[in-house]
Design a protein around this nucleic acid. Sequence first.
RNA 1: GCUCGGAUGGCGGAAUUGGUAGACGCGCAGGACUUAAAAUCCUGUUCACCUAGUGAGUGUGGGUUCGAUUCCCACUCCGAGUACCA
Length: 810
Amino acid sequence: MSKNKVREYNAVEVEKKWRKKWAEDKLHEVDIEGTPEEDKFYNLTMFPYPSGSNLHMGHWLNYGGVDTFGRYMRLTGKTVFQPMGFDSFGLPAENYAIKTGVHPEDSISTNVATMKKQISEMGGMWDWSKQVITSSPEYYKWTQWLFLKMLEEGLAYQAESLVNWDPVDQTVLANEQVLADGTAERSGAVVEKKLMKQWYFKITDFAEDLLDFSGTDWPEKTRKMQENWIGKSEGTEIVFDLLSEDSGYTEKTGESLVAFSTRADTLYGATYMVVAPEHPMVDELLADDYREQCEKYIKAALMKNEIERSAEGKEKTGVFTGSYAENPINGKPVPIWVADYVIGSYGTGAIMAVPAHDKRDYEFAKKYKLDIIEVIDGDKGEEEIFTGYGIAKNSGEFDGEISEKVKEGITAKLEAIGKGSAKTTYRLRDWSVSRQRYWGAPIPVVYCDDCGVVPVPVSDLPVELPRDVDYQPKGKAPLATSEEFVNCKCPSCGGNAKRETDTLDTFVCSSWYYLRYPNANDDTQAIDKALAKKWAPIDMYIGGSEHATMHLLYVRFVNMVMQKLGYVDHKEPTLRLFHQGLITKDGAKMSKSKGNVVNPDEYVEKHGSDILKMYLMFMGPFADGGDWSDTGITGVLRFRDKFWKMLLSPEVSELYKEVEKKLHKVIDSITTDMENLQFNTCLSALMEFTNLASKKGLTRDAKEKIVTLISPLAPHMAEEIWMDVLEHEESLFAAGKVWPEANPEMLVDDVVTLGVQVNGKLRGEVELGVDEARESALEKSREVVAGSLEGKDVVKEIYVPGKIINFVVK
RNA sequence: GCUCGGAUGGCGGAAUUGGUAGACGCGCAGGACUUAAAAUCCUGUUCACCUAGUGAGUGUGGGUUCGAUUCCCACUCCGAGUACCA
């Protein structure tokens, strides 16, 4: 029948042949306009940053898994759109340029070319005809358009905020560029904080929408992380009136300090207040005798970032301001402190401290000998203080009531006397999108003396990033050094104006790219409504979990805005989300600086990409990644050869019953595992089948089924078998819905072997029918473990059909 | 610090809703084939011991249950994120 003798499998040659053929046939190019909506499957991976180094094992794991899943969906009959692009703006290219003098445009275009070549050699079904490169004017033109939309919608605004300032390099630093000791990575200078006017996106307007994940299939952990990041808490804003020093703290100054608390029920126990070092009222709180000491403390505190301020083992520090405020519930004066454990951006930046019922306040109060008054009765257990809900005491009229009631009562009372109100706050902050850097999309606004802030009209986009700009750090944004760029005419009045010189955060570029892919080459509009509505939401989005809170929150936010504007129908950008794991080397993240980067190319050259991909998929769960070691690659090679030989052996006319049953069980388990992206167990199942069937022979039908099952994992080999051995006319991946279905009758066994336990310990095995009746099952089991039952009283007999028998004896 | 994960043989890992722990693979040991080796094939392989068996065992200590890798409590270690790396 077959013209093929059993021949050796030459992976490298075979793979090259099929990649060439697939490219010629444009097999992976999707008919974006013509595909019916019910057939579409948008299979997306988070696009890579084109860094200097080659593709690493992490990329391989990531894209290997994406492609395996995509091919599986393809074989179930879906039209799979699997585009690829590059997130090419950003800090690393700029830093590289500063260091080496190579222009980011040049290094990026080299890197993109290299990575594209390497990704192509993996043999994935990437649709390169819809590529996006975020640093290209054709793309960032529309990123600027997105900014203008935000502005139009009132979702972009300017405000001052603190940034890391390097006084030597005269430049803003990313948190990453600030070392743990507070000095700058590059210059070594002690980093300062500087107030700067920045553009923000009002993501906080969408806090409630972002908390609603209905309709999505996301990992529980990612949802939790986002929920905590958004950090909704319902509490009370409480007004503490300031007391004047001159009066001996008996009279009010007329000013007040507002604190946010989720535990208004503990207000009677509030014995002091703490304001964040960056609190806007700090300066007026400083009494003369305390000013010098406080200012020193505040300056030091502002140099640290949030993580350092609350770092491990760090003792809480603070200073007394010399001011007092009145506790509104009992009229008692409380001292006001400044401490860096209070963060300015959360709540109101000021807290009422209840040391008897809050751990941090307790530590602080003990250290500085502040009053500690218990106002709740509760079981402390082994702790020094009680932090839960209990029964109120020392709380005036609220004594004896439960905390929840007290909270409501006190809030109501505060409302009645005008000293507070119920309030919901969120930890989520607005998204700062301004960067004082060169390598980003220029923010498309101009500043006109007469008209103020004027958006650049869409027809004038892109505001092009000039190539010849001095991007060396020197005290102002790189774009500000270019007179040619800065000076322009006001689009509104035609008078002299100056351009905004900040660029956009690269997260803005990546917040909408999935809506651009379907019409990536369309120069007339950012998003094609009809196409976006058809292809969005993303059916499967795969990327690292390091993006759980930022990128994945920004994408959701932007999608919500786009929905509001009618560009998409769905609130959520992606239905299903999956995080691949991390590949490490000797337990550490692979990086050039550590010198532990393993180059995938050498494995591809030696064994072919199918082998490397299968090995990465087999190494462990796709969601876990793992530590790289090539010791196990032998097993995958052996399996591949065995599989190849099995498929090339002569066909048999009928399958052995055992093999047939196994085939259907394998179809069943692989289908489930593919759906769940558990590729390691897909391979285990294929190995088991091969071990069994290679001795017995396969029918043509079985060969077609098993080749289809392996094809998402080893597409080149599968295609070679499909076309060259099984002599099909058309590619397996163009064959439509060919994924096999298991025959349910083949999945059930009539006999099962069950463990027989005595007191929960395995003492024997028994063969039973699947639905063996209780009495006969127990009867047979008793015989098996007769020895262990001898002389004992059986007090209970447990029989769970198909699972277990357990005798409880005394 | 805070938030979220993870920990199973010598190694990578497997185990629907609690039901025979260690599938599959690597490695190792023994055997077949070979003048020999490689490759391939077969057998064995959680550990301990007084080895026809018995006991222990899924990071540690407790708990719930007839039964826990799985559920609960406390802890240890490792990883990710922590808002200007992406």
